[in-house]
């Protein structure tokens, strides 16, 4: 782009993304990291509590159970799933997979990634879910 043409472009207004559904969804996806950051800060607090001792750890578990924290973390759970839904469809576009000369259908790659999510959940169930 030469300088003369860049001078003719007006700067975007702050609310440009509110004018179209596609851009609203884009900004919603950008915003999924806000509850993620909240959850990560909670985890960091939990690690500090664990280092301090048994009493602090129990205090942290109680803090995680307070209604507002629980709601924000449920929001983080929903955000992680929404992020996953938008992220998984990008994979076959960025890196199409070919097996024995045939390209793997996009749906198969997306399904494979969801299978990964389920596998991690099963691993956690195996590790933490049994009495």
């Amino acid at each position: 782009m030469d300088k003369s043409s860049s001078h003719r472009l007006l700067p975007l207004k702050r609310n440009w993304w509110l004018k179209h559904r596609f851009f609203k969804l884009y900004m919603l996806r950008e915003a999924t990291v806000l509850p993620l950051v909240f959850f990560i800060l909670c985890l960091l607090a939990g690690m500090v509590a664990l280092l301090q001792g048994a009493e602090s750890w129990q205090g942290w578990v109680d803090f995680m159970g307070s209604p507002i924290v629980l709601v924000l973390n449920l929001l983080a759970l929903a955000a992680s799933l929404f992020h996953a839904a938008t992220f998984f469809v990008l994979f076959p576009r960025v890196m199409p997979l070919r097996i024995a000369g045939h390209s793997l259908p996009d749906q198969a790659i997306v399904a494979g990634q969801w299978a990964g999510v389920v596998a991690v959940a099963l691993l956690f169930f195996w590790l933490l879910g049994r009495a």
């Binding site: 959850f39 973390n73 759970l77 992680s80 992020h83 996953a84 992220f87 998984f88 990634q113 999510v117």
Partner: peptide, 9 residues
């Protein structure tokens, strides 16, 4: 974030 965090949260 997509693969691990849902189960972790």
């Amino acid at each position: 974030f997509a693969v691990l965090l849902p189960a972790v949260i």
